[in-house]
Every structure is written in C-alpha cells, then in structure tokens.
Nucleic acid binder design. Structure first.
Lengths: 412, 412
DNA sequence: CGCTATTTGTTCAGCGATTGAATTATTTGC
DNA sequence: GCAAATAATTCAATCGCTGAACAAATAGCG
C-alpha cells in the first residue's frame, strides 16, 4: 500500500515519453535474453508502434544495440534482439579507503569494464592529496574507457565515514578525515565526467552503502531487498529495499555496528555500551583470536585469521564463533524489524563467512519469529574488497538505465 | 538516489491525466490553506489551463469543492479556494482486538466522521462470530455515513497478529486466532463498501502497522518517516518511511518485541532469549510493579499503573524506568540502523509515556552515534486506543487522494 | 464614478505522443 | 512456389498539455 503514487512534479507529454523510455529500457535491462520489440510490447503493455518509436530513440542514443536474432521455433519473420549497448554512457566508481585507492568503470549492462586498485597507506596523506591521486588514476581510467567507446557520465565516491547530503565528509575516523569538503576539492581538478542532465556529476557516499549497491549486480532481476554488512574496523550496513538504497532521514542509516548486543557490556567509542562493534569488529575478533595487532588492519589480519581458522586453530575458531554469535544477535534483530530475507556478509566478513555464517544462522533460527515460514539466506558477498567502487560505478550506470531521458537529451 | 523511477507499467495518454489528477489533488490535500487554481499551477508546474481542466474533473467527481474565497491583499479577481470535499468517498476502518471491536469512517480530508467502539471480551468468541458482529456495527456506520453524503469505497481491518498478503490471519495469539481466512469470512456478508477500481475492497493488516498510519493524520505535510511502537501484551512497531508503511519482504516487519536486549536473558515464547517483550511488555511491567495480573490485561492494567506512578509509587516508577531503559536500548538500535528522527509511543505505551520517554531518550543520547547532530523526538501517540481503526480508515482515504482516477472512472 | 492595473480563470488553435489498423518484411512449412 | 505466421513500420485519428489571447472581477486612484 505505497500511497505515494502521486508524481513529484508536473507530468507533460514529454514526461510521457521519458517514462516510456525508462520503462522499455528497464525491461531490456531486466530481461534474461535479448527481447524483440514485440516481446517488449507484450511485456510493457504498449503497442508495437510505440515500442518501435521508443526503441528508435534508444538506438539513436546508443543506449541499446541490436544483437543477432535469438533463435526461435516456428514460422515468421525473425526478431531482432535488443541488448544494452556496450558502448555509450558508463559510470565511474571511486573509493578512498585506509589502505588503497580504487577506480572502476561499469557500463550499462553492469559489466566492470575497467578497474584499478592503488595500494597505499592513505592515513598519513592529506585529503586533498589523496583526492589528487585518485583523480589522476581516474583520468587514466576515463581515457581507457573512451578508447572502448565509453563516455563517463557521472561519478560516485565511496568513503569509509559519515557523509552528509552535500558530499561533506563529516567524519571518517579510520582515515583521519573530518569535515572534508570533497566536492569542492574535486572541483579544483579538470572534470572527469561529461555533464548529463539529471545525473549528478559526483555523489559522495558511505562505503557500506555503495558496497551494498554492488550486490545488486548479481541480482538484477527484479527489485531486491537485503542487508549488506561490511565488517571492517567498524561495522556498517547498507540497507537495500526494493532495489533502492535506504538512506534514512539524514542519510546516516546503517550504523549496525552500534546496535547494542550486550547493553551492559564493554564500553564503546560511541559512548554507548556493548555495541556490536565491540564483539564483532575486526579488532575484537583479532584480539580474541590472540593475534597481535598488525600494522595495516584491513586485509592482512583478516587473511591471517582465515588461515588460522582453516588450520583449525582453536582460539581463532572460538573468536569467530563468538563474533558470529554477536553478529547473529544483531542480524536477528534487524530481520525481526525489517523482515528481510537475505543478508550479505561483505568487506572483511566475506573471507570469514564460512565460520561466521553458522552462528549467525543459528541466532536467526532461534530468535526470528517468522523464521519458520520464511527462511533467511546468509551468504558472503560476491564482490571482492573493492565492492564499494563497483557499487558506486554501478549506481551511476543504473541511474542512466532508470532515467535515460537526460542522456538522450544530451546526445541529440 | 532512488533508482526506481521507471514506471511499473505502460504510460499512455490516459495515465498522464491520472498522474496529474493525483498531483493536483495531492497538493490540495497537503496545502495548509485552500489553494486557488493559480496557486496550484505555480506549485505543480502545470499551466493554469491544465489545472482548470483537472480541477473541473475533480469537482465533477466530488473529490474537491470550492470554498469561500480566501482573503488576499492587493488588486485582482478574487481566487476561489479549493478544499477536499466533505462529501464523496470515504474510508472504512475496522478493528478486532482482545477486548473491543472498533469501526470508524474517515473522509478525504482525514477527518474522523464516525466512530463506534463496542467493548466485549472477544477471546471466547469464534472468529466468524466476531466478524459478524463487526459487520453489523460497520453496516450501521455505513448508513450513518451515507446520510452525511459519504460513500465508503474501501475497508481496512486491523488485527493483533501476523497477516499474510492474501489477508489470511496466520496467528493472533492474544485473540486465539490461527489461520483465519478473514476475506472469505467477510465475503459471506453483504458488501460494506462500493467497489472502486484501483481500491481494494478489503485490506487486512497488523494492528501495529495500521496504528502507525494513524499518526500520519497529524503530520499531513509532506512525507514523514517515523517509528510507531504499540505496547500491548506484545510489542509491535509500524515503520513509516516517506509517508508509506514499510512492510518488509513478506509483510511481517516491525516485530520489535523480539529484538534481543539481553541476549542471555529471560527466555521468550518466541524461542529466543532476552527479547524486548520480556522486559517492556505489558506483563513484564505489571509484574515488576508488583501488580497481580488482572483479567483483561489491556486497559485496566495500564490505567492502574499510570495511577500508581502518578502517586509516586516506587515499585511502579522503578518498573517503568526499567521498561523504558529496555525499550530505549531497542529504539537506539533501530535509530542507529534506520536513522529515523521521530519515535511515537502508542497503544498501551501512550498513557505511560511521561515515565517511559526519559529513559528512552537517555539511551538514545548515549547510544546513537549521530544523536549529537540530529536530535530524535520521542512522543506519545496523539490518537487514543483505537488508533488502528482510524489509521485503517485513513489509509483508504489516503489511497483515494493518491489515486483519484479509479473513483472518477466509477462516478462518470 | 470611471479608469487602470492586477490577478484569476477560461477558450482555443497547435502540437507531441500513443493508438489501432493497415501495410510491408521475412521466415517456416507444405 | 505459395500460404501461414511473426516482426516491424506507416499513417490517420485521438487525447491531453501548452501558450497566448480573452473574459471576469476586484483594488486603487483621481
């Protein structure tokens, strides 16, 4: 009973075409095999005449291209299949993290067409310098993409911290950033992407949010709702509802790391007590497993932990089990509250999933009221460590698919 | 970055008018004083010509009516104000609860035009008989409404339990219902409402969900996001995001009563341990306050508790403080996760809010990471005990406002 | 009182987008 | 080689929005 069917603004004849462009393009994107114009007509309810006109616009704008006729049984003129173009607009994904910079390019079909990861300890680097390095890498990626016929039409930057709506990074503790005006700093460099009406040139967002969107690449069929948990030093969650990121009133949703799991337990840096982060954060797991804290906490510690667990080290196994139980308590609460059917373990958790999933599932089974009727899937993320960059680039590409009119208005 | 701008189905010229009808009617509903056609034109971006045509349809369909000209300074032809009609379509709200049946009628403007509460212990009554009684009361309400020029166009029924999408009541423990096919049982009685395209004749939903929608009556301006907590024997929450109820993948969201607040604490009937319900449910508070369990737990126990607290009874005050703290732990988790800025205490909690709010706010202040930047409001519900019936009727009325085309197609 | 400025609301030709039927295009099967 | 079948396009008709002109109604001012 969504009661928000009223459009946000006036609907004119032009909007009508805009909406049908989006409708048809969306069907092409969601189809599992290249649909014909006739398929699209029956699927959308439009007439074949209209679909032809719409498709003509999409072809002219290089958003779709005709593929080899799909094999079909029976008589009749063969159909021409339509697929998302592998040339044309594409999204740029950027990521600044503690120990790497990442850049990637994703095309309309969701394919990662370019990817660069530059490993470096970014903590001692000033924000402006870090962004300058990132721009340099991104410019190379853009040129690379251009040689494949791709035009970058928007960028999204993932940052491990709280970001406000204007793109100001309020606080990125592990990076040491505070009140960094990212859009202003990037504006001092030559623009990386072509301006397209309706597509923001730059979106800055929380790493956990964008990593969650990355998972949509592997569930492109229909709207999906799931919880994506990034286990790093802190624990962040991206909540995807019906295929769209849920950001909350101020854009600060997903702070699952501070869900209380032992209300009178260990004090947390947030000021509370017994937060999940104190029991399932990377540091908590590492110290519980008896490992000394390594220099770069992100990758090496996780990899070492997985090695130990693989080898059957009792301390590591116990640490992972306890962390998984704490995580399961929090996740059970979230599932009870939001009735989600899928939980994705991402970031540092992905590699540890074999040991984390069982206790998480156990807690869900015993605590979720509706678990008997609706099973909950818990699985590791399918993307690697740079999921956020992929998700960021994908979010731009998905926007073009959802609102093709802006791009078409540009290219004539 | 909602990426779901693509319409669900084909957009034809007719849809265009449908969308603009909804747009204009929505503006009229949201305005704080009766807008003129010219006001609507500037507000919506449509031309005055189009607005006139749209308004003509709305007037003909008795969805709006012209009010006395609003006073305006300066020269010029006086405007004719437009308001939602106080005659025409209206929504029927129904509620079956442990100790009462409630029926109410809400008009387009959100006014409660009729209300009947029939007190009776429904636990020993068979579902079919309870529904038969409800239908009888509702028929009287419908006739009453008809004499005021109101036509009922849809009904929503609130039930204290889990309801699936088809309206089957899977489980209503306190009512003793299990797998009750409500739509089928109601279909055996003469229809209560007129059939209107696009408006379901009957929606069955969880009481907590519909009570949450009731709060929208007092925040009609713009989309609101809040958490509404109904504290009864169980504790249910309705999550309203951007003015629409969030139901979850299977419609079973809001089970806040089973959020773990002491993971190794008291066993809960759900099979888990330390659920909120065991610490802030009505029974928990009552027994903690040293009260013997009364026969009908709903109203009397809460009222007695409020009396004792008012009188300064230490046991009652301590019980309420402890319950509020437990509630605060859970709410802090929800706010961290969803970044909501408003929490409404409804149901049995409404009367206890003076004692529950302080500890809840204290937990939020210490546990919510972003509390410093974004204050969270915690307030009691403004509707009484029958909030669910009002919310149910209001949801129907709001649907007509959001999708007026169906009603207009009916009445010619 | 009459005139002007001002704002509201309506009328009407023009236009863009969809529709539905007719037409063309291209293949399979007999 | 021809009929049947399916795909895609063409074209007049229609629906709804636009923009400008026009009619209606009031305040201010001399």
């Amino acid at each position: 009973m969504s009661l928000t069917h009223a459009p946000a603004s006036a609907v004119r004849q032009g909007s009508l075409r805009e909406l049908n462009l989006a409708l048809v393009l969306g069907r092409i994107a969601a189809a599992d095999r290249p649909p014909s114009r006739a398929d699209l007509a029956t699927a959308t309810g439009l007439t074949r005449a209209t679909v032809s006109a719409v498709v003509e616009d999409l072809l002219a704008g290089r958003l779709v291209s005709e593929s080899d006729p799909a094999p079909r049984a029976g008589a009749g003129r063969p159909a021409r299949g339509l697929v998302l173009a592998d040339q044309g607009p594409a999204g740029l994904g950027l990521e600044v993290n503690v120990d790497y910079l990442a850049v990637c390019v994703v095309d309309l079909a969701g394919q990662v067409r370019h990817r660069t990861v530059h490993r470096a300890d970014l903590r001692p680097v000033a924000p402006a310098d870090a962004l300058a390095q990132l721009v340099e890498i991104a410019a190379a990626a853009r040129d690379d993409a251009a040689s494949e016929g791709l035009t970058l039409v928007g960028a999204a930057l993932a940052v491990p911290g709280l970001v406000d709506e204007a793109g100001l990074v309020r606080l990125a503790p592990n990076l040491g950033w505070r009140d960094v005006p990212v859009p202003a700093l990037l504006a001092e460099h030559p623009p990386l992407v072509e301006q397209v009406p309706g597509v923001p040139a730059l979106v800055v967002d929380n790493e956990a949010n964008l990593a969650a969107l990355g998972e949509l690449h592997f569930r492109p069929l229909g709207p999906a709702s799931f919880l994506h948990i990034s286990g790093e030093v802190g624990i962040g969650a991206g909540i995807v509802l019906d295929g769209a990121l849920f950001r909350g009133v101020r854009g600060w949703s997903g702070e699952i790391g501070h869900l209380p799991v032992h209300p009178e337990g260990r004090p947390c840096r947030c000021g509370g007590q017994g937060c999940l982060e104190q029991y399932a954060g990377q540091e908590a797991i590492v110290t519980a497993a008896g490992l000394t804290r390594t220099e770069l906490p992100a990758d090496t510690a996780t990899a070492r932990l997985a090695e130990l667990a693989e080898a059957g080290d009792p301390a590591a196994l116990r640490a992972l089990h306890d962390a998984g139980t704490a995580l399961g308590v929090a996740v059970a609460g979230v599932v009870n509250l939001l009735d989600l059917d899928t939980v994705v373990l991402g970031g540092g958790y992905a590699a540890l999933a074999p040991w984390l999933c069982p206790p998480v599932l156990a807690e869900i089974a015993s605590r979720v009221l509706t678990a008997a009727w609706s099973p909950v899937t818990v699985r590791p993320s399918t993307l690697g460590a740079e999921a956020a960059a992929v998700g960021a680039a994908g979010s731009v590409a998905r926007r073009i698919v959802a609102q093709p009119a802006g791009w078409l208005a540009r290219s004539g």
